[in-house]
């Protein structure tokens, strides 16, 4: 599988916010600023902001994967947080200044531990 394509049937995130809670936490996603709500986890934030097929690529499966359970069970939400690879994005709450990096390399594979 090569670089992420843009020919998705639905190139939008899976979720949208409700309510008027402000996005006051500022973090970095792949080097670019992104604002989060204080109640977000890394996974919930990304599910509102990126297309799910760009969440991560599994090297073993050779295909994109995205969060499945959001309760710490499936390990499909692995992502690099503050330099630490393979963190469960659904368990980690957002913090100001956090550096989040998707585990997608040129060639479309993540780096496994």
């Amino acid at each position: 599988m090569n670089k992420l394509t843009t020919s998705f049937s639905a190139p939008f995130p899976l979720f949208r916010p409700i309510g008027d809670e402000p996005a006051e936490i500022l973090l970095e996603l792949d080097g670019k600023p992104l604002a989060a709500r204080a109640t977000d986890t890394v996974a919930s934030l990304l599910l509102r902001h990126i297309a799910p097929e760009t969440y991560r690529h599994s090297a073993v499966a050779g295909e994109p994967r995205a969060p499945l359970c959001l309760m710490g069970v499936c390990f499909e939400c692995l992502i690099e947080i503050d330099g630490q690879k393979n963190q469960q994005g659904c368990l980690v709450r957002v913090r100001d200044g956090m550096r989040v990096r998707r585990q997608i390399r040129e060639g479309g594979c993540d780096e496994q531990a």
Partner: peptide, 19 residues
């Protein structure tokens, strides 16, 4: 995703399916 995940998105992240 699992239905439980969507419920957690609603309860913890005040988010609902976009499409």
């Amino acid at each position: 995703m699992y239905a439980g995940a969507a419920q957690l998105m609603l309860k913890t992240a005040r988010s609902v399916p976009a499409g």
